[in-house]
Nucleic acid binder design. Sequence first.
DNA 1: CGGTCCCGTTGAAACCTTTCAACCCAAGGA
DNA 2: TCCTTGGGTTGAAAGGTTTCAACGGGACCG
Lengths: 337, 337
Amino acid sequence: MAKASSVKDVAARAGVSLGTVSNVLNRPERVSPDTRARVEQAMRDLGFVRNESARQLRAGRSRTLAYVLLDARNPFFTDVAEGAERAAEGAGLSLFMCHSDNRAARERDYLAHLVEQRVQGILVTPVDPDAAALAEVRRNGTPVVIVDRTRSDDEFCSVAVDDVLGGRLAVEHLIDTGHTRVAFIGGPDSIGQVRDRLEGARRAWSDAGLPEDQLTIVPTASLTVVEGRSAGERVMGISKRRRPTAAFCANDLLALGLLQQLSTSGASVPGDLAIVGYDDIEYASAAAVPLTSVRQPRQELGRRAAELVLDEAEDPDHVHQQVTFTPELIARRSTLG
Amino acid sequence: MAKASSVKDVAARAGVSLGTVSNVLNRPERVSPDTRARVEQAMRDLGFVRNESARQLRAGRSRTLAYVLLDARNPFFTDVAEGAERAAEGAGLSLFMCHSDNRAARERDYLAHLVEQRVQGILVTPVDPDAAALAEVRRNGTPVVIVDRTRSDDEFCSVAVDDVLGGRLAVEHLIDTGHTRVAFIGGPDSIGQVRDRLEGARRAWSDAGLPEDQLTIVPTASLTVVEGRSAGERVMGISKRRRPTAAFCANDLLALGLLQQLSTSGASVPGDLAIVGYDDIEYASAAAVPLTSVRQPRQELGRRAAELVLDEAEDPDHVHQQVTFTPELIARRSTLG
DNA sequence: CGGTCCCGTTGAAACCTTTCAACCCAAGGA
DNA sequence: TCCTTGGGTTGAAAGGTTTCAACGGGACCG
């Protein structure tokens, strides 16, 4: 592996000055066709690869965006990343994904590294949206956009989805399809999203003039398939007369677990219990009974976040915006029969 | 956002030379405590952040690895990434994930960008493992390790899992649990992994002396839940007398679809049909009937790949190795009742 | 034939860090 | 007192690219 060759080597081989080589690279139209051909040939001969560090050093900016995400295994985040990726691609940039794995320390390391790299901008779904580290990153000169979280101050751009509205949509749909006893399944309520979705559910309920005690809360310890199954056992353990006829789950994993539990025990969906999930993950539509679910515009979220971070990077008059997207209810057989 | 400050600014403010600032950064033990304190204070005052491009330019190497993966939504790849990440973290490096989304053009862009960035090494699950682009990357000076694919020549390090053995394990397990009519569900056979798993299944079958026509091939168009359901219909459409009593699915998504189809139609698992999946994804153990599945050491795969690429980067006597990992059968209720 | 203009090319400067030989000075030994 | 030693600090050079003012030469116009 011979030492990488530089513009100087290329220039020498092509018999031109190194300024010309640079012109071939950056403004080929300024160079006469035959000179250009000679330079390009020399590049091929030497296996020349432009050194991005040097270019960046000189240019002061990189050609990269980064998305620091909490959990690469959650399809929600990878979909967001994909949206951001497309936007980056459109702007001629690369998007690097960094997996903080929900660890604040790892997140900090990544952020520091990215700032040192002088990436054009950072999208981040932070472990703690109010962490001082984020302000520090921006103070150090790198634009930051917060994704799927909101910060208590408005010092940052952020993109998120209106979870209160999502909860409302879900429950309004159940009310519209005739249900008057409904369970909300989800938890722990330390998760902001869970709280918001429940809040939306409650508002829809009281707006419809339904009695508060007919909206049952079934708490779960986490948002997983296993918890969904156990919640199912609890719901079905209620005497038929008083049992809810529909359940709104705080996410699709819970809903899938619930669905499994019901079909294992011979109950019918939606006959015995209608189900609404949240997130509309791929498995939701592929379930044994396709799930009604609240869809968030995930790719759009990523795309918009990328646009915002680029605006912050390029527009000196940039004003921070908190963008809220609108979720959408996708009705399927689990509520429609 | 004031222009970022450099070591020179820090030096001026601290009243020392810029060499000293650099020493504080890189060999703090050489600097007297009070000078160091002064310099560090100046850094804080100015919000100094080391410019990684310049450092890299000087040092000739970066502090980064990258993993270019096919599909960020597939938990298999993100688990591999996680293993690589841990290894990178251990070596003081960052790992960037790049999502090629199965598009050769995007993969090419990423590889080019990474080479220009002079990353220390690239892990890649390529769209086409024999693509000339990979050889080009290495020729240009960046170590490359191929993950979960194998190349026809041995010019690269690679890490993969023995799919033939995996297929064998699955079918041996079914034979051991008393089945003499088995279906292999999977396709298309343009996918190398599908071919290998089937090959392993066949070998186990004939080694056990069972008649070839009792191993039924049920082809699918892709490895998805929906295809699994349709395969289920086909299998259950066979007259009871000749119907297989067990199915080995080429991946877990097929197995989950199959399971859904069976439970929807009232068939029992494993009573009417035992099921073995492949990959042991998270949903496999969380399914209505927990799935027996063939587990691949995903994190280990990533970890080893990272080690290999670092070895290639650092050891002048590096020899390319093709590492093959051994899969493991995880028996659960879908075959054991 | 002389003067302009424009195109293509050149060479040096700048970007910021790290490294390393050289230097200074105080302390200790002769 | 002079010399040595060594810790602490310095300043210049190097690394590869981009930019830009300047330059050379050919073509065109008068």
